[in-house]
Design a protein around this nucleic acid. Structure first.
Lengths: 115, 115
DNA sequence: CTTGCATATTACTATTTAGTAGTATAGTTA
DNA sequence: TAACTATACTACTAAATAGTAATATGCAAG
């Protein structure tokens, strides 16, 4: 009796999922997350690591923080950010896998098709 | 000795992942995908199922098709669309799981905190 | 208190895009 | 051929937002 229920998403879940996907749809934010996936970093370190402007880094971190993808911890004058949602790793791995699969598929189509 | 290599995404992968996340960041498109996850459907059926306008449905399907999230098959005058990327199921399940986890966390914080 | 630094916020511009109405294309039937 | 239908495309408007510079906030040292 442990059949997996494949229930449809509710409209509210759709809205929320769209909101979360939108947050992950910005290269700048993915780049920040990519750095944080290595280790937690202060804003200054992220500026250094990414080459982005301070205001931009801070703004994007605010978005990620509000969605709880990252967490913030004050250290004196500094603010240290860290990944706060382990689902991010799975999401990124899935997406990367799909990108590679797709690249492979397209290559196959080109080489195996008669035209 | 089977350590999982956690390699960083390349800049190109980040760009592509952002593009794909963006495609999934539109509620209208998620709603179309939700319908198609039940069964394949023609454009007319999708209009009926979602209440969206024809032009809008067609446009969003075009975006999903270009990204290969769905596939199209002509049937006489009709065009039948179907999910073409099984990663979508995993992605949606992950996202829905995260939404529920987060809701649960927030609830716990409210009830267990002294303030 | 004043100075200096790290971070956050604000105001602005420019770009993107969702939704829509109208039009075009293509298959089907007579 | 013409008429009908399903779908795709085009042009447009309105809304959202990324990046930036400038300013504000808050902590820390002297």
């Amino acid at each position: 009796m442990q059949a997996k229920k494949k229930k449809q998403m509710s409209d509210a879940q759709v809205e929320e999922a769209a909101r979360l996907f939108a947050i992950l749809s910005e290269p700048s934010r993915l780049i920040l997350l990519r750095s944080l996936m290595e280790r937690s970093m202060t804003v200054s370190e992220l500026i250094e690591a990414t080459g982005m402007k301070q205001g931009n880094v801070s703004k994007h971190l605010g978005v990620l923080l509000e969605a709880r993808f990252v967490a913030r911890e004050k250290e004196g004058n500094f603010a240290r950010y860290a990944i706060a949602d382990s689902n991010l790793f799975a999401l990124c791995e899935l997406m990367c896998g799909r990108i590679e699969q797709e690249a492979h598929k397209r290559l196959q189509e080109l080489t195996s098709r008669p035209g």
